[in-house]
Nucleic acid binder design. Structure first.
Lengths: 327, 327
DNA sequence: CAATTCGGTGGAAACGTTTACGCGCGGCTT
DNA sequence: AAGCCGCGCGTAAACGTTTCCACCGAATTG
């Protein structure tokens, strides 16, 4: 049987209001009574009922995060960032995984919105128009920008640009690109950046279209790449890159001898690959932490102008890029 | 401004009690009025305030899950299983990651316990004695058994036994084992099973001690293994196995030519490795789903006898195991 | 036809907090 | 020395539900 503030009040010889004040840290209670209250509270094993507190304050102390796929180390790391920051401010986090299904996003958003003080929406696969806009909780987008929305994104454009520049410097004129989900905003960013940059550099870019952001997607991408004259492949993310490497291996294509591969995200996977994967580093923990910070700011001042935070990216050279084999 | 049951009641010309009943699905309201209530509710954008509901019912509709490391695909998959099952019964999930620090577990458990109806505690790194036992919420252990606790575990013992039997059949008499965290219950299980089985088979087992369940742990394990006459390495999990493979590669040790490697868990990583990793399959989604089921059962009947559910494991042969090179 | 049940509904009391308001009391200003 | 300020605290009114109890009419029973 859990005890209530009334029990503590009685035991400490004060009123429930004082107990509440002692816990709310308002400093509006003398140090002596505060100590007395705390002692009794500990003795009785009391802690404030979150439901009751929430009913009156309207704050749950929880924040929600929605990701397309928990099993993708990229999103797992973002959540870890969120969690780290949230733990400091004693907030719990509700996570929801939409299994890469865009139609689950709106629903999940609506359900979650009643449970939390704010929501972090990572890499939504829906069009912004399909997302409910009348939710009464603040939202921060991660890796998606939209007018009027708060967001934290990484500079994917710069990252893939560096990748292409590097490949060009190695001597690759024919480069393939395997894109991710159609409605991935950051995917679009990469595509546009690559197009522009390819034109600038005089590199021939083979767009392989969009593949699933999974190992299987990578397998498919590899076959598509081999059907072009490309000597290098830039993949939507590390998972796709690794999948492609696997398929290259199976088809007897040497990486990086016959085909250079560049991933994106710099997840732990890129270090596990053999050879280790050249990839674009994007700060994931930091993105998670920044998102919580923005959420807190929005919570403090709901009418503030939306902030769009941009995180830096950089190419990390490892073992899967090399000059093309002389033919 | 979110509307309340009173608004809906007024609009529909009924009492708040009826509105409540219409939403509580009790079937204690006529179909006509129910429809009327629902119509008005939709029009006003009403949905029951979870805090108020929870205050009176004592149920939050949330379940918590605590894992040592979200970034480990093994736990990510367990969470996905939990999430899938929880979504069906319209429960949200609170996840907490303890960063492999056992001292965070008790705290997290206590904090979470006020927020949720039940907690799933996956692979705790603490001794059971260090965990608070007076929490008023039901708990289900995953991959840990303890007297008086509900749990769902996998038959790791059988899995590693199969691995050792297979290695023996390939001709390996000297096998190294890299263990995981000291207080990992399932780790202890593996160690004991391997010891017993090695004795039976006449295989010489080199216990490398415990390494961190991370890539770095794997790197270390590889060096330790090479300091023994072992021709095969069984690793605590896939991450460690992949880390070890990386180090073997760096030191010019061919896998599986010079050294066979067996992982554990059969995560997506094992398919990404080159060559793909021979590993022990352990059902992760199923573990998550089963844990929720047990939680629901415990919730329905708190005084029931604890259930200990066991999931089957099986060796999956892939590319990292082969007969030892003839010397 | 009278007595009884029962499905459907409303009134009101909880649930455990937070917080506006008010009050006594000591120390400060003038 | 009289008034004022502000600190510390208690009283009581919310917050938005669920649920017990009572009530009414209609249907069922004897």
């Amino acid at each position: 049987m859990t005890s209530t503030s009334r029990d503590v009040a009685r035991a400490a010889g004060v009123s429930v209001a004082t107990v509440s004040r002692a816990f709310s840290e308002a400093g509006a209670v003398s140090e002596t009574t505060r100590r007395k209250v705390m002692t009794e509270a500990r003795r009785l094993g009391y802690s404030p009922n979150p439901a009751a507190r929430r009913l009156i304050t309207g704050r749950s102390g929880n924040i929600g995060i929605i990701v397309p796929d928990l099993a993708n180390p990229f999103f797992a790391d973002i959540i870890k960032g969120v969690q780290r920051r949230a733990r400091e401010s004693r907030q719990a986090i509700l996570v929801a995984d939409t299994d890469e299904q865009s139609r689950l996003e709106a629903d999940t958003l609506r359900t979650l919105s009643r449970q939390v003080d704010g929501i972090i929406l990572a890499s939504p696969r829906s069009a912004m128009d399909d997302l409910p806009s009348d939710l009464s909780v603040p939202i921060v987008l991660v890796h998606r920008q939209a007018p009027g929305w708060w967001s934290v994104t990484a500079d994917f454009a710069e990252g893939v640009r560096q990748a292409l520049v590097n490949l060009r410097a190695l001597g690759h004129d024919h480069v393939a690109y395997a894109g991710g989900p159609q409605l991935s905003w950051s995917g679009g960013l990469r595509t546009n950046a690559l197009r522009a940059c390819a034109a600038d550099l005089g590199v021939h870019l083979y767009e392989l279209g969009s593949v699933a952001p999974t190992v299987n997607g990578g397998l498919a991408a590899a076959d598509l790449a081999l059907a072009t004259p490309a000597t290098a492949l830039i993949a939507y993310n590390d998972v796709v890159a690794l999948g492609a490497m696997r398929r290259f291996g199976a088809r007897g294509v040497d990486v990086p001898g016959d085909m250079s591969v560049v991933g994106c995200d710099n997840t732990m996977l890129s270090l596990l690959a053999a050879p280790s994967l050249t990839t674009v580093d994007v700060p994931r923990f930091e993105a998670g932490e920044a998102a919580v910070a923005l959420l807190d700011r929005q919570l403090a001042d709901p009418d503030a102008e939306p902030i769009e935070q941009l995180l830096a990216t950089a190419l990390v050279i490892r073992g899967t890029t090399a000059p093309p084999r002389q033919t």
